[in-house]
Write a protein that binds this DNA or RNA. Structure first.
Lengths: 337, 337
DNA sequence: AAATGAAATGTAAACGTTTACATAAAATAG
DNA sequence: CTATTTTATGTAAACGTTTACATTTCATTT
């Protein structure tokens, strides 16, 4: 027996319109009719077809999530935050990665254009201007993660990478280090840029000289951190402290230090960014910047839902920067309690 | 201008049936008509409505994925594998966690019943019999991950936890340890059970005595590993080597060892299970069991797609056990090269 | 008691596909 | 050149909702 809205209507002697009204809490309906329908629906385990509903009303109750890749705790945390919040709103989540080889844009367009979702959360830290066009053209609201400065006319939620970097480098300066190096992230990555700028600006503000040869580029991978550290410490003019733009590279730097027989932090201090699980396990514990990723996902979803159901104006641009926090380990020179 | 199949049909002077046939590669159609339609569709950037399609044909091109939680690399790896493979088949992924507080069953039923997906991959390592009922009743095919012995009449892909445990414990025995303890996982977790049985069986087979007081229960968390280790090493009769049922607990055990001033592996050897990122970073490097999680996800999706499009018989039960591999670190007593 | 308005319900037209069945056109057979 | 098959196309009925609009019912006002 196939059981649809017709069937419910027939069995409760009302029209399908009434059933629909009951199911959607829309329009007036006599309490006793409502109860009759509701109990019958429950009894027959009736679930309205999401597709019919979507076809007719263009609501899917589904949110699209596009991430650059599906690896690491980092992205899992984002998803976790989004999922938790989505659950509160009874939204479903359609998740996809950009599958790097393909063009980000292509993935996004396909996703957005398909009509499978009511809106999307997109993270694309290496963002071309092209993407803004796509988003602007999209009928469905979009929230961007970690991918734009507040200048742009979109909705975005970001980690305050700039301040985070300043904080941790300031901490190094407070320790008395004067020669501070950095292993940067990839140039085209906006987060990496902000972290570098924070590093640069605080140095200058505090009256330290910014030296090109103290800075080296990595790609956020462990090996690139290792390699970067070898380069930095192989020179004659060695920095006393290293700020790695993320924890993976910091851990790579640890490995290099170990190979070079350098003690952390006695011979060289190392700090990171992201506060990944491993950073709390290694010895000496890594001083790093905590990044509220789960919260980021939560807020993004929350705002997106607002745009979808009209609480927030989707046309209005909005930006939020979540602030980071310092996690003090011993790798900077602080003593453990 | 709203552009749908009607519009395409009108503009190319054919009926919507023909357009549909072209778009689905179904039924005969004259090559020149096909081309005309195809180019027009591309030109107008026409994408068929997935909802209308689903409504009419009950194909959604969407796969549901239900995981117990969305945390850790472990689950991310599963998703990654599933996503990669899904991408090959042009399937979309709808992901949800069981949100522990709610009943697993409830989540699953809702997911399955909604008709949003063509099938589902479900991971629920603490599996009640109840779930089999739900799956059997479901119209859509289901693949289970890590959640059942091959006795049951379903499709499942599993890690061979039993053999993995045997391997690594055998390795400890080969090192000459006679007093081997274990920090178990939660009793109701099927994977934890298998790992324990592997431990138990190999001990007995190799002629070592199985001693209750060498075994303690944890919950797969770091802290429980820490606590378990304290208990085990606090007794008068201390084991010489510890098999932690997963790496998190092994790392917890490391911390306990450090607090007790026990050297690994000189005073006590520790091995784990799962091969998480951190296990390769810590010192001494953790000897553990590599678990092909990404591959597990890939295979599960592949098989599910087969069931969906009829290549595999959904009614037939099928089981695959992916084998694990030993990752040798120094925590077992092996020397680094 | 009639007039008015509000509340409850019903009718039917979308929404955009797929697909069984019918028909027309073209190719093949006799 | 007609009969027959094959290939190409069209028609129309699902699929299961939502919702504007129409209608009925009922309570309130005069």
């Amino acid at each position: 027996m196939k059981i649809n809205i017709q069937e419910i209507a027939r069995r409760s002697n009302v029209s399908i319109a009434t059933v629909s009204r009951v199911l959607n809490n829309k329009g007036p309906v006599k309490p006793e009719t409502r109860n009759k329908i509701l109990t019958l629906a429950k009894q027959l385990n009736y679930k309205p077809s999401p597709h019919a509903r979507a076809l007719s009303s263009r609501r899917t109750d589904t949110i699209g999530v596009i991430l650059p890749e599906l690896v690491d705790e980092y992205f899992m945390d984002i998803i976790q935050g989004i999922d938790e919040e989505a659950h509160l709103f009874n939204k479903y989540l359609m998740i996809s990665s950009s599958h790097s080889q393909r063009n980000d844009i292509e993935t996004i367009m396909e996703f957005m254009g398909s009509g499978r979702t009511d809106g999307a959360i997109i993270m694309a830290p290496s963002l071309h201007d092209e993407i803004y066009e796509v988003i602007k053209k999209s009928k469905r609201p979009v929230v961007l993660l970690n991918c734009c400065s507040s200048k742009t006319n979109v909705v975005s939620f970001n980690i305050d990478n700039y301040r985070g970097a300043r904080q941790i480098v300031a901490h190094l300066i407070d320790h008395g280090y004067r020669k501070i190096g950095m292993i940067k992230g990839p140039d085209r990555n906006i987060e990496a840029q902000a972290r570098f700028e924070g590093f640069h600006d605080i140095l200058v503000e505090r009256g330290l000289e910014y030296k090109e040869n103290y800075v080296i580029s990595g790609d956020f991978s462990l090996t690139s951190g290792n390699y970067g550290m070898l380069r930095l410490m192989g020179s004659d003019d060695k920095p006393q402290a290293i700020f790695a733009a993320n924890d993976y590279m910091a851990i790579g730097a640890y490995q290099a230090a170990r190979n070079l027989n350098l003690k952390i932090p006695e011979d060289v201090a190392i700090v990171g960014f992201d506060d990944i699980f491993t950073s709390r396990i290694i010895h000496p514990r890594l001083t790093t910047v905590h990044v509220p990723v789960v919260e980021l996902g939560r807020r993004a979803l929350n705002y997106l839902v607002g745009m979808i159901d009209g609480t927030k104006d989707p046309a209005e641009s909005y930006h939020e920067e979540l602030s980071t926090g310092l996690v003090i380990g011993e790798s900077c020179g602080c003593k453990s309690k």
